[in-house]
Simulated scan of single mutants.
Amino acid sequence: MNIIILFIIGCISGFVLFTKVCLTNDDVFFIKKHKVSVIIPARNEEKNLPFLLESLKKQTYKPDEIVVVDDFSSDKTGEIARRYGVKVIQNPPLPAGWTGKNWAVWNGFLNSTGDILVFLDADMRLAPRALEVLIKTREKCAGAISVVPYHRPERFYEKLSLIPYLLGVLAFTSPFERKNPVKSLYGSCIVVSREDYEKINGHYSVRDEVMDDMTLGKRFSQAGINVENFIGYDLVYFRMYPNGIRSEIEGFSKSAVLGMINLSRSTVALIALWFIGVFLAEFVTPLLILTRHPLIWPFLVGYIMYTLQIVYFLKYVGDYGKIIPILHFLSTVFFVAIMIYSTYQVSFKGCVYWKGRQIQVRSRRGL
């Protein structure tokens, strides 16, 4: 019975962490008040960029300008952007003390003119009313907002991201993070006024940070600017890693350990409780089935409990099909491997890798 109690506590921890903070898609008439600039840093994004630019063409609330920063792409990223008639900036050479994305975003800002800045990763895709809702939501919050997108993986290796991505969502919807006076942001989709961005000196203030989005949110909070996070659900979504499993491993491993460092202890404790329950249910249950152990039923019940909870979360978080949500232990194996690799990079090598660049982290984190 003790193991059942552990599974129940674990599931409760998951429900405490998950909050349905969806963007509100209302029909209230909205008068355009500001000039809006969409800024997109892009490095080798020929497979993603057309989807984003096509979705921006279909917005009910048209942006005044779209700035794509071609960050030394070796593919057709720049050519595709020009084909859509947007403003294309060739990113200057990366100076010492900057990470690649921060430098690209900063130069995108310097070449923009809008009163409202919408920072979007190139893998983002927007429903037709998304930009309108984002602008409305930012005005209501009177500060900076970010959105954790709904994930739509397509290939099998992409769907292995279920557990690490779900844990990331739980971290951002955690009530302890939402009530934290110093909040983080999710970097794939950030909306802020130019005035507030300039007040903290924008990405220049986080130029050497790997977790630039989380630190940027804290800079806003410390400056007295309200920060709020939402989940994209049916308005804001993305496909993170269409370029192969290597990019997926690099993407998750660069932030797995450093992301946890930036969370409150209460959030980390609840995530740990949830994950311990999942891990035990996933890997003890098969052993008990094979050995026909009498404890098989409590563990089987635990596996079913977690599976149903994961399916519920995915209704709001991502479309992972039918197989991986049931066989979620495959994603847990992937997550454990990612954590080991991320720990090795951060603690022993002092650097992480992303899109062909080596990013130093030892000196910044004191590791």
Rank of each mutant, 00 (worst) to 15 (best):
I66S: 03
P325V: 09
E177R: 02
K218Y: 01
V105R: 06
D27E: 09
E45F: 00
G277V: 02
K349E: 09
F279N: 12
K218I: 01
R178L: 15
N111G: 05
Y61E: 02
G14A: 11
I66V: 14
Y312V: 12
D75S: 08
V191T: 07
I116N: 01
N226P: 03
R292S: 13
L235W: 02
L367A: 09
F230Y: 15
S73G: 12
S247R: 08
N229L: 07
L17W: 01
V68T: 04
L287G: 01
V236N: 11
R43Y: 06
S174E: 11
I39M: 05
K183N: 06
L94K: 13
L300N: 13
Y312A: 12
L162R: 00
Y303G: 04
R219G: 03
D64E: 09
A337Q: 02
F279M: 13
R265Y: 10
L330S: 04
N180A: 11
G244H: 11
Y353H: 14
P164Q: 09
M305A: 14
S161Y: 15
C11L: 11
L166D: 02
K315H: 14
R365F: 15
T291A: 13
V86A: 10
Y241F: 13
K76C: 08
G202Y: 03
R246S: 11
I80N: 06
I5E: 07
L288M: 06
E158P: 04
F7M: 11
V257R: 03
K32S: 12
H203Q: 05
S266P: 05
N229I: 05
R239F: 07
R82T: 07
L216I: 09
P92Q: 12
F279E: 12
I225E: 02
S264Y: 01
M260C: 15
M124K: 14
I190T: 00
C141P: 01
Y316H: 15
C11W: 08
T332M: 14
E46V: 03
P93C: 05
A144D: 04
K322W: 07
I326F: 13
I8R: 07
P93A: 14
N107Q: 07
E209G: 01
K254Y: 03
N25S: 10
V192T: 05
F275K: 15
I326D: 04
A81P: 07
I340Y: 00
L53Q: 04
N262K: 12
Y165R: 08
I271Y: 02
L295Q: 07
Y165W: 12
V206E: 10
G356W: 02
I245K: 05
P149Q: 07
G302F: 01
G277D: 05
C11P: 02
L273S: 14
T267Y: 09
A130G: 10
I145S: 11
K35C: 10
L120A: 05
I359V: 14
L162I: 12
G10I: 06
R138Y: 03
A96E: 15
